[in-house]
């Protein structure tokens, strides 16, 4: 689905987290919300997800104004957030309605995709961090949402698992072509996955830049073009300068 964020601000009891941010996400696009911590990336995503409705401004899904959660959105949080009392299979079917057999079949299909078919009967306590997050991805995908919202989904994982899951997400994107909005503070991750990178900056966070990347995916990490974009992002976030000063 297309997502239109128009002049969204969010205030929490006097402090402003996000100020007047607007951007547009085309259908099937992967958009990254990039910025240093505290610039309101997650706040924006929560507003789009409908988990937070206290913002000012307008958010349109498919051109329709929307405030509140939607079945068409799948959300993947920073932590897996699995129900510890449910098996992997039951966690995946958590958001599904309909006949049990059908639910089970859909869930098993997705567990196969994320490589956890043999773990369907395991409990979350028996999973590694990467496996738990893959379960959460399967749970988000099983309702076949047209849009995935990801809130720093890989930031709690080790470097290898992170790369693996990024590849997996790209594969899934190639298969189902969902629209994706992804909060991240990892520039490499944004460069590897995103068609568009929204850079937020400051406190309160304001929109600093809106970059479009046209390189086809999957991208090579050593691509000199990407290295230049990275340099540009670092400079625009004043990170290189801050490092020099320190």
């Amino acid at each position: 689905m297309s997502i239109q964020v128009e002049a969204v601000s969010r205030r929490f009891e006097g402090t402003t987290a996000v100020e007047n941010v607007s951007f547009y996400v085309e259908e099937g696009e992967i958009v990254g919300l990039l910025g240093t911590s505290g610039c309101g990336k997650s706040t924006l995503l929560r507003a789009v997800a409908g988990l937070d409705t206290g913002y000012e401004g307008t958010i349109r899904l498919h051109g329709q104004e929307k405030r509140g959660t939607s079945k068409e959105l799948g959300i993947i949080f920073q932590e897996p957030r699995l129900m510890p009392w449910l098996t992997v299979l039951d966690n995946v079917t958590f958001g599904l309605d309909g006949p049990k057999e059908e639910q089970k079949k859909k869930a098993l299909d997705l567990l196969e995709v994320v490589g956890l078919k043999d773990f369907a009967d395991h409990y979350p306590k028996q999973l590694s961090g990467g496996m738990a997050q893959r379960t959460a991805i399967a749970r988000a995908l099983v309702t076949q949402p047209s849009t995935l919202l990801l809130d720093e989904p890989f930031s709690a994982l080790d470097a290898f698992t992170k790369l693996q899951l990024q590849d997996m997400v790209l594969d899934l994107w190639n298969q189902y072509l969902p629209t994706m909005v992804m909060v991240t503070h990892d520039i490499d991750e944004a460069l590897a996955l995103c068609d568009r990178i929204i850079i937020l900056k400051g406190q309160p966070g304001v929109l600093h830049d809106n970059l479009k990347l046209t390189q086809p995916k999957p991208r090579r990490k050593s691509d000199p073009e990407l290295a230049r974009v990275k340099e540009y992002i670092l400079e625009s976030l004043d990170i290189t300068k801050a490092e020099k000063e320190a």
């Binding site: 988990l51 959660t69 949080f77 932590e79 129900m83 958590f94 958001g95």
Partner: peptide, 21 residues
């Protein structure tokens, strides 16, 4: 609260959230 939020994200009603989470 994070688990409750998962329920909300799936559009569960207050009663369903109590029963299932």
């Amino acid at each position: 609260r994070k688990l409750v939020e998962v329920g909300r994200a799936y559009g569960l009603s207050q009663l369903q959230i109590i029963r299932r989470i």
